[in-house]
Every structure is written in C-alpha cells, then in structure tokens.
Nucleic acid binder design. Sequence first.
DNA 1: AATAAAATGCAATAATGTTGCAAAATTAAG
DNA 2: CTTAATTTTGCAACATTATTGCATTTTATT
Lengths: 137, 137
Amino acid sequence: MDQLLDILKKNQLSITDGRKKILDMFLRSPGALAHADIEKNTDIAFDRVTVYRTLQTFVEKGIIHNIPTTDNSILYALCKDNCEAGQHHDNHVHFICDVCDKTICLDNVTIPEVKLPKGFKQKQMDVVVSGICDECK
Amino acid sequence: MDQLLDILKKNQLSITDGRKKILDMFLRSPGALAHADIEKNTDIAFDRVTVYRTLQTFVEKGIIHNIPTTDNSILYALCKDNCEAGQHHDNHVHFICDVCDKTICLDNVTIPEVKLPKGFKQKQMDVVVSGICDECK
DNA sequence: AATAAAATGCAATAATGTTGCAAAATTAAG
DNA sequence: CTTAATTTTGCAACATTATTGCATTTTATT
C-alpha cells in the first residue's frame, strides 16, 4: 500500500509523476519546504510552472498548507496527522530554527488562546516560534 | 517637537525627505504596510530602490518590524509603544482582517505561552490571528 | 561656505510569479 | 487493449518584485 497513491486518490487527483515526486518530498521532509527547495531538487525535473500549479492544487485539496514567514517566501508543509483528513485549516504551531533554518510543524503542541479586544472575531490563529531546534541545541 | 525627527535622530539617521515621508505614513497608518502600499502612495515620489532601502534601514534600526504572512508579501508595522525604544524584537499579536484585509498590531494583547517539545528553545514568538476586525464586524 | 559622508536615482540584472495554448499523459469507456 | 475525453504538462511570453553598482545629489560636519 503506497501512502503516496493513497493521498492522491483520496483527494481525487490524477496520478502523475510530478505530483508523486513532489508529494514524496513532503513525506520525506522533516520540515517545511519552499517553492525554491522543490525546484532546486535535481530529482524534480519539472517546469517551474508545474511546481507552482502542483503546490496550488495540494493547498486547495488540503494536502499541504502554508506557513507564515517574515521574509517574502512561502513555506509549505504537510502536517502528518491532520492534513490527509482535509482539516488543514486548523491551528498549528510552527517552529523555525535560527541555526539550521528549518521549519518544523509541531502538531502535538497545544495552541494557546488569545484574548482579543472588543469587536474582534477570531477565525484562525497561526503561531510561529523561532529559536533553536532539538537537533541544533 | 516633531515626533518624526525625534525618531530619526534617536536612531542616528540623517533626515531626508524619503525617510520623513515613509515614516510619516507609518505613523498615520492604523495597520501594517506592504512595500506596494508605500510605493503606490502618490505622495511618495521616490524610486522603488529608495523605498526598499529605507524599509531595510528602518527594520535594522528597530523602527519598524515585519509581520509574517501566508502570502508572499512582506508587511511592515511600527508598533506604537515599543519600537521607538528599539525593542521591536519583542513578541506581538497581529490581527489580519478577512474583510478589509488590514493588518493591525495589537500591542496590548498579552501573548500566550507555548510549551515546546524537549530540546527546543524559544527566542521569539509571532502570533497572527485572522478573522473580522472591530470596524468590519 | 567648503568638505566629507551618506542617501538617492538610474540602469541593468536577477529572481519570482502568471497566463494562454499546444503537446503529452492520464483516466474513462467500449 | 484500444480509443476518446479529460486533465496535466511544458513552453513561451509576459508581469511583477527585488537587488546591485555607480554617478549624482543631498545631508551633516567643520
């Protein structure tokens, strides 16, 4: 049973080489990936446009979601437990390591609550913590 | 006593038209600004490059800081109380309104604490809440 | 007012993202 | 298994966004 095919089929996506390879990268990656990471991967011999469109499709289907960053890059991550169920709009804690620069999706960290001023209604919350990760300590 | 000049002088920056006008935009703006907002402002008749360099300088000096976003834009905000003291690396709560699309810096909202897994060391935390702001409710 | 230092504008270049359309691959049907 | 319909991909062109070097202008210093 291939996890790859499983995810693609569940989301009613046709099985193509591009989607398989890109999804495979996410499944193997401990952290988040930027568009550039994928494009620079020599195994991925696809056109820039295909990468853009594949990522867009994956986001729409809820296979991956994007992580806020303070630079102008977009980070994508597949969160192990939830995303396959299509619940990727749920709240997450993301950790960015200042040393190795990797972004890790901390699925099992409880997200805190925030008291907003009067009149504000919360729909989603993203928490990005930066510091030193467990491998670089 | 001009607040503008005060901020620039405190940070040992020469007083130029560009810096004055861009800083003025931040002082008048209730929310965060993107590079594009500044460039499109007809009062700002400066070269793109100047805007980039001015923003970079302001960030380095701690006059403004940038806010994580899930799209590929960089948002900058001057946070009313802290930034002048150069403490802009402190933790903030940012609110992005889904309706009017403005980003607001909630300085007086207490930032929550997060328990990280073993081995992770937290240095900074950014919280981005999205929903409906008090003006669009 | 003259000089040193810093900031700006311009031009060129690089990097990043988007769109339309033809060719190729995948799926569905017989 | 082969064919037709649908979807995906690659290419090309284009648009937007960001960066760098250098000459010119502006600001600060004496």
